[in-house]
Simulated assay, not measured.
Amino acid sequence: MNNWRVYGILLVFALVFTASCENSDDDTDLDNNLALPPYESMVIDFGDFADNSNAGKSTALVYDNKEPNGNWVFSRLVVGVWNTALFTSLAVPVASFKSSFAHSPVDLGDNLWQWTYSVDGFTSEYTARLTGEVTGEEVLWNMYITKVGIGAFGEFLWFSGSSNMDGNSGHWILNESPEKPLAMLRIDWERSNDEIGNIRYTWVRELDEQENDDLFKDSYLEYGLQDGPLNAYFDAHAYDENTEVFSDIRIEWSRDTYLGRVRAVDYFQDEEWHCWDANGDDVQCE
């Protein structure tokens, strides 16, 4: 069985932001102001793979001092790498975006709106300035963050993006940090039936911390909805430093019963599906 150290290494590079998956009131057009894209356009719902009983899933998936089984645990590790990333270096810009839903924008004229506010939830003082500019059939978004106090920095463009006027698709580009103001992560999203039907995180950073070519560039994790009993999926595509090639993983599960399956040739050393039941226990695939 391949050690698949890629996930440990990706964990070292964990990069992204606070991942509370609360529903936001993103469809409301406040007093005819410009409506924001959904907050969930930045946050994949990892709830069915969270190891806690408050994730909106069956509590049977919570391990009660027992040795966990391999198939669901491996799948949880795969998505957990990216989920962990959502709690680290990009916590500030994503929290800033989430906070924007509690504020109304100012119409600056020339099809430009602006939100300005302090960001809650941090010991340091951050101020956010979000702009949305209507240009033809899309809206261009820019989020600027300022910090005062220890580690202060001036206004920094931490992410940008665009969305269609109907609010059903778009993308985000998140920059690494004020110290390294280069693109790190791209998020492409689509909404259908009032929920995110497809979202993909793509690692776009060109250089790693040692200023070498980032071997994980073009790695991605995609979440989507599909028809059938297993109505949700993750597709992971990531660089494996052992084999020095990109490896692929497909995870499918039911959002209703939580049973599912995973296929990972490089990890399991076969092309078969490996399944788990609603308790997270390994079972034979039907």
Rank of each mutant, 00 (worst) to 15 (best):
K57H: 14
K66H: 08
D235Y: 10
N279G: 09
C275P: 03
Y63D: 13
S100F: 03
D248L: 07
P38G: 01
S160I: 07
S100K: 04
A91M: 11
K98H: 11
D235W: 03
G161V: 02
M165F: 04
D51R: 07
D120S: 14
L112G: 05
G197P: 01
S254W: 03
V106R: 10
Q226R: 12
T59P: 09
G80S: 13
E211I: 11
D227M: 04
W113G: 00
F74E: 11
T28H: 08
R250C: 10
L259C: 08
N71A: 13
H103F: 15
N69F: 09
E209W: 09
P105W: 00
G260N: 00
Q284I: 13
V119D: 02
L230Y: 15
G109N: 11
A55K: 01
H171G: 04
V62K: 05
R263T: 13
V245Q: 15
L86C: 12
I251K: 00
K98L: 03
V79A: 02
K66M: 08
N2E: 09
D26I: 03
D110Y: 05
C21N: 11
E222V: 07
T59K: 12
A91I: 10
R76T: 15
V78P: 00
E244G: 12
Y117F: 15
V78Q: 02
E155L: 06
D26M: 01
F153G: 00
E222G: 08
D282E: 10
W273D: 07
Q114Y: 00
T88V: 11
E133A: 12
T202I: 04
F49D: 06
N164I: 07
R255F: 01
A50I: 08
N3L: 10
S104Y: 09
S162R: 15
Y144M: 14
K66F: 09
N71D: 10
W253I: 02
G132V: 08
E133V: 08
T18Y: 08
N142V: 13
V92R: 02
L225D: 08
A60D: 14
K98W: 06
S75T: 12
L34M: 14
R76S: 15
G154K: 11
L174E: 00
S75R: 02
L86D: 12
S160F: 07
W273E: 04
F153M: 02
V6F: 05
N242P: 05
S89P: 00
N175G: 03
D27L: 13
Y117V: 10
N52D: 15
N111E: 11
I199E: 01
Q210E: 14
A91S: 15
Y220K: 14
A238E: 04
D26A: 05
L140T: 08
F246I: 03
W273S: 05
A128C: 10
T123K: 09
E252W: 02
D227G: 08
F246L: 06
L157M: 04
D214Q: 05
N2D: 14
S100W: 03
S96T: 06
V139Y: 01
T146V: 12
E195S: 13
D110V: 09
R5F: 08
S24K: 07
